[in-house]
Design a binder for these strands. Structure first.
Lengths: 238, 238
DNA sequence: GAGTGGTCTAGACCACGAG
DNA sequence: TCGTGGTCTAGACCACTCA
């Protein structure tokens, strides 16, 4: 309990963290190769890679296959804003922010049918979003909408039309490792955890208007939720 | 892009997932030892462990050091409810739910001072919560409150008193690997990602009343956020 | 093609849990 | 004490990036 395993990788991570915060390593800079770092710290390559995995999960280091490990620009963190405004349309920090969308028609199956509260095999439309800023992907979204509510075919501008008063947005966040497909789509390592958000938007009549499965890369994404309280409601903080 | 690396570990994880969903492996059951599984699947122990890490991050498998890998009871998932009601006081599924609290007085430093919007070295009280259900920890929380707002000394029942109308609860969720201390406190592996939530509670006057750093084990915790919309506000879903 | 990270192997040794 | 998982080693080989 007192010193919970010295653990080589954390020692190395600590050392690199210090070098970053003291400015010995600057944002954008490239680290020596993993082989060089391994010999420098006198560890094997797997352990050195584990150390980098720690820094990567904190957003301090970015690994780029084939070219090296880089100190991340600390500001460049993407924030998903919860509460109904889909994938965070934000100030957009000058970098070209683009979205790739593809549309598919399909029929509800077990898990999806339950989420949308529809009977199995009822028709749905799936929107597959891949959000880029420049060439780094920011989020992967699978959005499912009952066919009769889905906008014609052009997806980009259509959903902006006001909907029949949606009443509730519920978002469940969890952390897990990505599937191989998600990892390649988001261009992250398969050992880097993602934020997985399941969003269910409910109508004022209780009908589920949309269900979405969002995946955000854990090294460069946060999810932000804001709740405002009108002073009337009894609030018990433990 | 077509088949993103067959990758042994995902194949093994897939096989075990199927055995779980088809009922060949039942909740509570113990898996063969990692050495046995490794020879069965004809892989080395590290790769087999990587396969189990996948299932662990999905909450399907629980690793217990020294005794084995077990199929998780799928229902047993802990849900943190965001929006102001602190660490999810819930139905409490019969299992004894206990909280360990320790209180410390300290002074604000850089990061903390910024979060609380107080001047550095201004007095704070820290509450360190460790939430158990039975003997499995559910969450680790470090709660910081300006000294003059902190309740006397007894922390357990005190905070229930109505506060001067808090106006906003902001919660930022990210995924990262745990520190060694967090890992031992939550009894999870150091390679399992946690949900890290930074919660800032603001007064109706704009004063920060509380800042909290919450850590939830990624294998058995979700965070749930619900937003209700009064139909008046213009809502643009992209 | 040279250099990089990504995956995997086949072990060794330590730390923990239960009898 | 014995069997378990946790950490680490010292390599091999493949996949990607860039000149």
């Amino acid at each position: 309990m007192t010193h919970p395993a010295p653990s080589r990788r954390h020692a190395i991570a600590e050392d690199l963290r210090n070098q970053i915060s003291t400015g010995h390593l600057k944002p954008g800079e490239r680290l020596p190769s993993e082989a060089q770092l391994a010999t420098r710290y006198e560890v094997s390559t797997p352990t050195l890679r584990n150390a980098l995995a720690l820094l990567q999960s904190e957003g301090l280091v970015e690994k780029i296959h084939g070219s090296g490990n880089f100190i991340r620009h600390p500001l460049r963190r993407f924030t998903y804003v919860g509460g109904g405004n889909t994938p965070a349309v934000q100030p957009a920090p000058d970098g070209a922010l683009s979205v790739t969308v593809s549309t598919t028609n399909l029929r509800a199956q077990g898990h999806l049918a339950a989420l949308l509260k529809v009977t199995p095999s009822s028709p749905l439309t799936e929107f597959l979003h891949l959000r880029h800023e420049g060439k780094t992907p920011h989020s992967l979204a699978r959005v499912y909408i009952p066919r009769d509510l889905a906008p014609a075919a052009d997806a980009a501008a259509s959903l902006s039309s006001p909907r029949p008063s949606l009443a509730e947005v519920q978002e469940k966040v969890s952390a897990r490792l990505p599937t191989p497909e998600e990892a390649t789509a988001l261009r992250i390592s398969q050992s880097l955890a993602v934020l997985a958000i399941t969003r269910v938007v409910t109508d004022i009549n209780g009908r589920v208007v949309e269900a979405a499965l969002l995946v955000l890369p854990g090294d460069r994404a946060d999810a932000l939720f804001t709740a405002r309280h009108t002073p009337e409601e009894g609030n018990s903080n433990e």
